[in-house]
Simulated assay, not measured.
Amino acid sequence: MSNLTRNPEQECDIAQGCDAVELIIRPRDKDLGGFSVRRTLPTSQRKMVGPWAFFDHMGPAEFAAGQGINVRPHPHVNIATVTYLFEGEILHRDSLGSLQAIRPGDLNLMVAGSGIVHSERERPEVRDVPHRLHGLQLWLTLPETDEEMQAAFYHYPAADLPAITVAGVPLRVLIGAAYGVTSPVKEFAETLYVEAHMQAGQTLILPDEEERAVYVAQGSLKARDMLIPEHSMAVFAQEPGIILEAVEESRIAIIGGEKMGRRYIEWNFVSSRQERIEQAKQDWKAGRFPKVPGDEDEFIPLPE
């Protein structure tokens, strides 16, 4: 998904937590014309969690026939984007020639590296009938030595991602290693991304990572008797044995990994170097990025 403004930091309600919970971030809904997006990263008080620099929750949205997601081609540099859907379908195209429908349970990993352009639309079969969309989109920073790597695209079908049950909780390890299993998804730095579906009263021990957070896409949780409400992100201290308890039926995402150095973000560009972002802006304005095969006629201009 393209960021719509030059400054991606969103206004959020920030609550100070207990010793285990450093912050609770409650993003405000942003209407993108027919559906809502909630952005928890970056914010003024928390730029990143591990290598994760951007976290958007889109939907759930109901679209009438003829309406839906229609994101024109736009560029990225020096990051990887991750898309994971709970419901619906998005058609991904990029300047490498990739053409891939992503469906619930699949994971798309697009490595921008030195530069890539992509669009997110819908197949006519989806758009021509009433449909729903609900999912998460994240940006993953690359280590400084890999920021200018060659662009790449990886698609992991749902069947290839480990699905296990821990203490009665069904979960999927999407990136990294947790709960005794390891995801096949390519990593560039130590990274954690887990999705879980908990019932009221169930508990789950939070995996140990240098940095970690939990986002509640549906329901609500408790950690050390502190409530983590629906559509909020709890950022945790580096303390072992933290237990999550579902107050009600809850769908959650656990993210984290190793702490990364400072990153600059403007529009859809993220880099450890401000001058790289300026170069990318000028390259986009001058039309020096590659085109998206099959989607060459439109593009999103650089916000002024």
Results as ranks from 00 to 15, higher is better:
Glu248Val: 15
Leu204Arg: 00
Pro240Leu: 10
Leu138Phe: 10
Ala178Leu: 06
Asp295Trp: 03
Lys259Trp: 02
Pro75Val: 10
Asp128Ala: 14
Ala158Asp: 07
Pro51Glu: 03
Ile252Cys: 11
Trp267Arg: 05
Leu41Val: 03
Leu227Met: 09
Leu206Met: 12
Ala234Lys: 01
Leu96Thr: 13
His92Tyr: 04
Met149Ile: 14
Gly66Phe: 07
Ala80Ser: 12
Pro27Met: 11
Ala237Arg: 14
Ala200Trp: 14
Arg273His: 12
Gln202Glu: 07
Val129Gly: 04
Pro27Val: 02
Gly287Phe: 11
Ile252Thr: 04
Tyr179Ile: 13
Ala151Phe: 05
Gly180Asn: 08
Leu138Gly: 00
Gly17Leu: 14
Ile255Met: 11
Glu298Asn: 14
Leu85Phe: 05
Ala152Ser: 15
Gly88Asp: 05
Leu171Gly: 06
Asp29Gln: 09
His92Lys: 12
Leu142Gly: 05
Leu174Gln: 03
Leu91Thr: 04
Pro303Phe: 04
Ile277Ala: 04
Glu298Trp: 08
Asp13Leu: 15
Tyr156Lys: 03
Glu275Phe: 07
Arg224Val: 05
Phe236Ile: 03
Met233Gly: 01
Lys186Ala: 10
Glu210Thr: 14
Thr43Gln: 03
Ile79Ala: 03
Trp139Phe: 08
Pro207Ser: 08
Gly180Pro: 06
Leu206Gly: 03
Trp284Ala: 11
Ala159Gln: 15
Asn70Ala: 07
Ala167Lys: 15
Lys259Thr: 09
Gln199Pro: 04
Gly97Glu: 02
Pro157Met: 12
Arg251Ala: 09
Ile242Gln: 03
Ile255Trp: 01
Ser119Asn: 13
Asp297Ser: 13
His76Asp: 00
Glu147Ala: 13
Arg251Phe: 11
Arg121Tyr: 11
Val185Ala: 13
Phe299Tyr: 12
Ala61Asn: 06
Glu147Thr: 14
Gly287Lys: 14
Asn7Arg: 15
Leu192Arg: 05
Ile242Ser: 01
Phe188Trp: 07
Leu4Glu: 08
Val126Phe: 03
Gly168Val: 14
Leu41Ser: 02
Asp160Ile: 12
Ala163Leu: 09
Glu230Arg: 13
Ala15Met: 05
Thr145Leu: 09
Gln100His: 09
Pro301Asp: 07
Leu133Ala: 15
Val37Gly: 00
Leu99Asn: 11
Leu85Arg: 02
Cys18Ala: 13
Gly33Met: 08
Glu248Arg: 14
Glu22Trp: 03
Phe35Val: 04
Gly257Gln: 11
Asp13Lys: 15
Glu147His: 10
Arg172Thr: 15
Ile205Phe: 05
Gly88Met: 04
His155Thr: 09
Phe269Asp: 00
Ala246Pro: 08
